Computed example of a mutant assay.
Amino acid sequence: MEWGTVPAWAAVGASALALVISCLALLQSKRSADASTRSAQTAADALEFHRRAAQPRVALAISRLGSGTYRLTNGGTAPALAPALAADDVALVRWREPVGDVLHPGDSRVFTLNGSRPSRLRFSWEGHEEVVHVPVPPPG
């Protein structure tokens, strides 16, 4: 081996080392970009969750008052507009007072059950036509 080729071999070695370092840096930057994308998606999901949680909601609940007497309460933060029982449940309930056109947050209506004791009553209201199953507490 001649001394003139030593610098050339050193240059080849240095180039190979530079190539390895570049490849490692590329892999690390890809990992960092992937982590950044996951972090951004997590932040977007959290923002959507908080946005939905902050929206006013109707939350109907039934509590037992006494022998066959129950109370329907809107425990949510939004009014239930034109609340209605599902057609099959209408005959099961006798309201002590009319439900009316709006059941405001915190408002309640007292009712009795006619004969049978269902495990739940089904309600819908304007703006939420999907039926909501509200559990009826058992007697006793």
Rank of each mutant, 00 (worst) to 15 (best):
A35D: 13
E48K: 06
V58H: 02
A25W: 12
E97C: 09
S119G: 15
S108D: 10
A11K: 07
P7I: 03
G140F: 11
I21N: 12
T42M: 14
M1G: 15
N114P: 03
V6D: 05
E48I: 06
R96I: 03
A8I: 15
A84F: 01
L85R: 00
M1I: 01
S108F: 13
S15Y: 04
P98N: 09
E129P: 08
A10Y: 09
P56R: 04
R109V: 15
S15F: 12
A87E: 14
D34E: 15
L47M: 04
M1S: 11
C23M: 12
A18P: 01
G76V: 00
S108W: 09
H104Q: 14
G4Q: 10
L72K: 08
T77H: 05
A16N: 00
L60P: 05
S124N: 09
A11P: 00
R71Y: 06
N74T: 08
A78T: 04
A54S: 12
A59S: 09
A53Y: 01
S124C: 13
A46E: 06
S116C: 00
G100Q: 11
G127E: 01
A14S: 10
H104W: 12
R94G: 00
A8R: 13
L81R: 10
S36A: 14
E2M: 07
I62R: 00
A44M: 11
L24Y: 13
S32I: 11
V132D: 03
G4S: 12
A91H: 05
C23I: 11
A86H: 10
L47C: 02
H133N: 11
P138C: 02
L81C: 00
P83L: 06
A8K: 13
S119A: 11
V110P: 08
R38G: 07
G106V: 04
D45H: 07
S119H: 10
E126K: 07
M1Y: 00
